[in-house]
Amino acid sequence: MNVNKANEGMNDSNIAHTSITPPSATGELLVILGHAPHGSSLLREGLDMALVAAAFGRRVSLLFMGQGCWALQPGQGEGALGQKGTQSTLEMLEMYDIDNIMVEAESLERLGLESSDLVLSVSVVDAASVQQAIASHTLVMNF
């Protein structure tokens, strides 16, 4: 499968493991998560926002891009002072019926992350699918 135009000219040795699945559903709210856990609270507060929206009955989709992909790295824990990470929040998504969870292929590739080794079952999407997801949601918020 031709992954996407964004991968042109890149070493594509990892790409064979990714599956490109177009986002299945439209929804009301798309939360784009672009910041890493622990270094700032943007990821955590973005996820809180998604959970609250879902708790209020909104259809919520998540899209991890750039540094946000680090949220999907397995084996995360608390910080040395006991400060919370985000892995426990990710484990609650299913309970809140947030099941349209996407990650951008090029971001994974750049960070050396494998789609087969992530904490959640996610749809790996190309740039065109990112654009489609943005168009098909009523409200898009970047965290």
């Binding site: 009301e28 709210l29 809180d48 926002m49 609250v52 929206a53 209020f56 909104r58 009523t138 409200l139 918020m141």
Partner: peptide, 14 residues
């Protein structure tokens, strides 16, 4: 945060 969700969905632009 529910107010933020409402604001975003209620307004033409956030």
């Amino acid at each position: 945060l529910g107010q933020l969700v409402d604001l975003g969905l209620r307004c033409d632009r956030l």
